[in-house]
Write a protein that binds this DNA or RNA. Structure first.
Lengths: 188, 188
DNA sequence: GCGACTCGATACGCTGCCGTATGGTCTCCG
DNA sequence: CGGAGACCATACGGCAGCGTATCGAGTCGC
């Protein structure tokens, strides 16, 4: 399992872990090197400089997320409502904490770096489009469908921001109720 | 207007600006000093070290936010629905960008610092309580009211995370529709 | 006017990080 | 076996940030 020699992917993976745990500021080559049990001599073999790593992260995240949302909203026999509930479950609660952490770190990064901001915008465009289509499949008109998608994603991201320790015992039930509000049962 | 001598508040204010613009990592004493046109000799007069500044920020933010939410949800003659729409408007859209930026930076900070996490949790508890009460005033039972408050705040914070450049022309209308979904018209 | 106090400047050492330069150790291939 | 190339270690210079120490320059009480 353990490749005896590192490659670009090893460094990218470690970089995303660092991003998830500490934000962009924590993806530093000497820290990653320590994490990977090598020295930065290795890093500068695979990458020209830190910038190149960071741009590879942006590009990789973008394509990965766009592929993912397309796959996740391709309903093979599912109804639109089921599809929405499925997408919601992917980011809901405590499933996939790493994915959520990367998502949030990415967005915090985007707040102060125009390149990250552009990448996040592209991903959001695609996601809003895909999820809008699902809501449109529920019978909503274009504006309502978009608004629902907007609410949908705002909730998903915002939920990751709300301190779950504020009332741990009530969150699960709240999430269920929110699910019903976000993707209405009765429609279509 | 310009005080000829700085005090703790001056540094705290500059620190919050730096926090809003660049996250905790950017509240650095030498940067703040440059921003305030002094040297760090001043800083270490007013604060023991960077830690003390940072803790003062946490404490100040906590008390300020808790006072604010209590004032904002005290409905003097307003109906609960009006109160909710008012709170929503405070954080909505492009009003108060600095407040939103601090809010998001605070939460990103909380993701990796347990002290910040605890502060945010305390503020969230109070906010959820206040807004839950408003929803309860609309006739919802306890669980539904809490879930609505949960959705309400998730939306507010999540909205700040969504790339508005993903579809700038559609966001305003979407926000309006979301408002109607978040605080139902008919209820009560 | 003089000491005490407030507030800030200057200068230093230390650490962590980036990037470069150069050398070493494998592996593969002919 | 021997050379080439892939991969990594070691060592260095440079910069930025933290914290300390010390020294002014104003201000206020008396």
């Amino acid at each position: 399992m353990e490749a005896k020699t590192l490659n670009r992917e090893s460094w990218l993976s470690a970089a995303f872990s660092a991003l998830a745990e500490g934000g962009v500021e924590q993806v530093r080559v000497e820290l990653l090197a320590k994490r990977l049990k090598v020295t930065k001599g290795s890093f500068y073999w695979h990458f020209r400089d830190r910038m190149e790593l960071v741009e590879a992260m942006l590009e990789g995240w973008k394509t990965g997320r766009i592929e993912a949302i397309k796959a996740q909203t391709r309903l093979d026999g599912r109804t639109p409502a089921e599809g929405l509930r499925y997408v919601l479950s992917l980011y809901g609660g405590s499933s996939n904490p790493r994915g959520i952490a990367i998502e949030l770190a990415m967005r915090d990064w985007a707040r102060r770096d125009p390149r990250a901001s552009e990448i996040v915008a592209e991903v959001d465009r695609e996601r809003l489009r895909c999820v809008s289509d699902l809501f449109a499949g529920l019978g909503l008109d274009s504006d309502d469908a978009f608004a629902r998608a907007y609410l949908f994603y705002s909730f998903i991201f915002g939920e990751g921001l709300l301190a779950r320790s504020a009332a741990p015992d009530r969150f699960e039930k709240a999430r269920d109720i929110c699910g019903k509000v976000l993707v209405p049962e009765g429609a279509s």
